[in-house]
Design a protein around this nucleic acid. Structure first.
Ligand SMILES: [Mn+2]
Ligand SMILES: [Mn+2]
Ligand SMILES: [Zn+2]
Ligand SMILES: [Zn+2]
Lengths: 156, 156
DNA sequence: ATTGTTATTGTAAATTAATTGCAATAAGAA
DNA sequence: TTCTTATTGCAATTAATTTACAATAACAAT
């Protein structure tokens, strides 16, 4: 399987742009963890690896990483965008706990059918979709119930 | 059916907060249009109605409107959040054109089943979900193809 | 109705994410 | 190696959202 770096190099050449060690470092860091990230987090991770890359360079790289199919926007939370690597990852949806932030990923087989149906019905050329569920994970749900019970007892 | 204003008044009382004409104006404006909106847009709409409400008051009202179940975040686009009224609206998904911004709404019956299945499988108390599809609408898709043809001709 | 408490407002300043101008650097084609 | 110009780091800017603060007003209790 072609590596993310190779995919990016091909994209860069195709677009007549220039590849740089900075961009490769960014890609390597993203694909060394394979998890959701935001710009600040990625910047700090790279700083920990002794990288001196400016945050502006990360911001400037992101549209290219999206265009080349390496990453995509995952969700907007806490006032900023979060991204995730998608190259080499199966299309998946998210189940997110609004209490502790835990994210469960899962593949929803039904989605392809829905996309096909919608494309026909609304004459859309559908390129992407995002399916996110939010609620409380088992732990947080239990914690809340316990808390409620405490409150109730206090009131008695 | 209970009006959005009544729902909000009940919520406000329940929370020991105070209702204000400003908040009611905001709710009235949102539910006079029943469409997606962002803060700036809503602010301008209200200014057109000769309302002098400060933008900060809209920002401060939004969490209450969400908490009371009147509106929810719809999507993040063009660098800021967009909201939509949900009270009195059926749960729906979005099909959004990334070229012209057109939004098609539709109800996806399958979602309830998926929610039930996930809740059981992952022991989540699922409160909400967001299903958005993005791509090109028929018109924009055609326009793009025409454009491509022009480009191709120019190259010949 | 009047009063008292304090939540809410408008204004301006602050904060935060993201973008951009600029001069120095360096990628990569020639 | 040379040349062109895309990319970088840095600092300044823009834009969305939040917040401090003093004035106002909601509404519960007189
Ligand atoms: Mn994911
Ligand atoms: Mn909608
Ligand atoms: Zn949780
Ligand atoms: Zn369109």
């Amino acid at each position: 399987m072609i590596s993310p770096l190779e995919v990016f190099r091909t994209y860069i050449k195709e677009k007549g742009l220039r590849n740089t060690p900075e961009r490769e470092t960014i890609i390597r860091e993203i694909f060394s963890v394979h998890d959701h990230f935001d710009v600040d987090e990625l910047f700090l991770r790279m700083r920990d690896q002794k990288s001196k890359i400016a945050k502006a360079s990360i911001y400037r790289a992101i549209p290219l990483l999206i265009e080349s199919g390496l990453i995509k926007e995952a969700f907007f939370e806490d006032g900023h965008l979060h991204y995730e690597p998608i190259y080499g990852h199966s299309r998946h949806c998210h189940l997110r706990c609004i209490c502790c932030g835990k994210v469960v990923e899962f593949v929803e087989e039904e989605m392809d059918n829905i996309v096909d149906r919608l494309a026909k019905e609304y004459h859309f050329n559908i390129l992407d979709h995002r399916l996110d569920f939010t609620g409380y994970c088992a732990e947080c749900n239990n914690k809340m119930n316990d808390q409620d019970n405490v409150d109730t007892k206090e009131l008695l």
